[in-house]
Design a protein around this nucleic acid. Sequence first.
DNA 1: AAGAGACGAGCATACGTATTCACTGGTTCA
DNA 2: TGAACCAGTGAATACGTATGCTCGTCTCTT
Lengths: 340, 340
Amino acid sequence: MARRPTSFDIAQLAGVSQPTVSRALRGSKSVNAQTRQRIEAIARSLHYAVDKHASSLRSQSANTLALLFFEEPAEDESTINPFFLSMLGSITHACARAGYDLLISFQQLSGDWHVDYQDSRKADGIILLGYGDYEAYRARLDHLTEQGTKVVRWGAVGTGPAGITVGSDNRGGGEAATAHLIARGRRRIAFLGAADGRYPELEDRYRGYLDALVAAGLTADAALQVDAITTEDAGRDAIAELARRGADYDAIFAASDSIAIGAMRALAAAGQSIPDDVAIVGFDDIASAQLTNPPLTTVTQDARRAGEALVRTLLAKLRGEVSDDPPLPTRLVIRASSGA
Amino acid sequence: MARRPTSFDIAQLAGVSQPTVSRALRGSKSVNAQTRQRIEAIARSLHYAVDKHASSLRSQSANTLALLFFEEPAEDESTINPFFLSMLGSITHACARAGYDLLISFQQLSGDWHVDYQDSRKADGIILLGYGDYEAYRARLDHLTEQGTKVVRWGAVGTGPAGITVGSDNRGGGEAATAHLIARGRRRIAFLGAADGRYPELEDRYRGYLDALVAAGLTADAALQVDAITTEDAGRDAIAELARRGADYDAIFAASDSIAIGAMRALAAAGQSIPDDVAIVGFDDIASAQLTNPPLTTVTQDARRAGEALVRTLLAKLRGEVSDDPPLPTRLVIRASSGA
DNA sequence: AAGAGACGAGCATACGTATTCACTGGTTCA
DNA sequence: TGAACCAGTGAATACGTATGCTCGTCTCTT
């Protein structure tokens, strides 16, 4: 097992000095083209690759991004929000294209993740994925920002510090979903999802829901709004809560597909027919949405563009640029759960 | 924005030398307990954390594992095999518990991933996830092994070099699935999935299928075996192929849930009733399996234990130990698709 | 009472790269 | 014809940590 070749080895074989090798391989223009080619050929033949740690230590940049999933404390390890997972592919590819490595980690919102990444120089920038109130981690975020670590997060555009939030047009999506139900003749539309500030994205979807009601001349009924975080259990519980209230409703707009799926199960168990008795629309368009019975009408967020936008924004911040993208468009996908 | 503290800063404040700080923080026993506590207190108050790159460079170990998903060349970025994705959580947590960082990357089986990770010292060990014949990347794997990089992969236990493969009891699972269909009175059971050597795991499931047939005194009919890789499209195509052959079958054992779901769609489109006309059993128990109509009977692989076993095996290899675990047990989950 | 350990800590150095500065020989311009 | 310049390269050094070696001070043994 021969020792790994270093830039000194290449230098010796090429008859140049080590700095020249370093410059040649990094594409510095102050190296003669012939010399560069000779060096590159030798490097290739020796399977030489720059030592990442030495390079990072010297240049003070990790060439690495970190992807942090925030999970609810009580949550099972394996139940990651499917929509976030669907971003994984495009985030990974976008990083690779930019020449960055990607570290991945699951964290409690309340944990010490800020120390781990900033203070140990593991990553140049961090992507935060997870629902949750910005206030809950503002202090940690501030610490990172002060230290110069760049951060972007998926969330409700307009909340949090400027230029760090990338997100979908939740309000527009919520309006489209609700307007669709209204167009199908529904009038008593329940909203399942947090309407308070703890989940700004869900709140925006609720605003869109209200927008649509107003536009149609309908008034919102507080009895038809049930708090639910984005899990199937929450969807199930929400149906129970509606029943407890004796609420009268002919449609549901669920703030996420997971909630919708939980609700559909509970409705089916209660002998309710979908969409005849209750029409339902979700949000996210996770893979499972096509498989429910009936298939779930939902609002698509483009996970690929979302992931790419996150990486693009973060890389821009690393270069010192400010890029404040508008919210990503959403699109209503009509399936059977909202009526024929 | 103050400069990051280094071990020299800590040393000065503690009135000791830099090496002592290093030793104290790494828990070397040759540091006086009081001294250590003093150093630790100072480090904490300064938010000091060991610089990862300097540490890795000096110690020649990255303290990082890499998780490589192999994707089919033609595959869409976003369609990652759901079963592999479900391992992500437990792999990530297992790494974190062991104090390792986790790099993640998607790669073509045929690409240059071996160079990227070994030659640049990015990771101490690599976890390979993806179906595919071992022969297809034997050369790259050999290169890594020669260089001393440790590798484990998810696959068919018994294939590939000793001690690097962690996998489920595919044969046992295949037998259980098929035996279940036989117990339900089915006699003409089709197998959807590769039976040749290209996908050893699927081949093992096929062997289990044959085991069950033999045990029941049935003979396998070659007309009922259709090659299918693990995608929904392949499942759809397989049903078309059976129809083309004019095959007579009353049940299907699909080598993966994705195949099964594709097959179910095709059957439904053809007006066939599940399970009355055709009973069906899948393999993997991905999340979507609960949502199909009817819900899919399938063979569960314990994704959490799988991920943990991969990490445990890899860490053992890093310590120079050899651990050859037996295949992980599988379990039949009976739902409606296989009959009442 | 003297040698042998054990303990605790410092000195020097190595890990492999990137970058600043200085230098050489040739070219250009006034 | 000399001064200013440029392309191309090497020498020296810094990045922050971990570790082998050395050394002094105690304690313990014989």
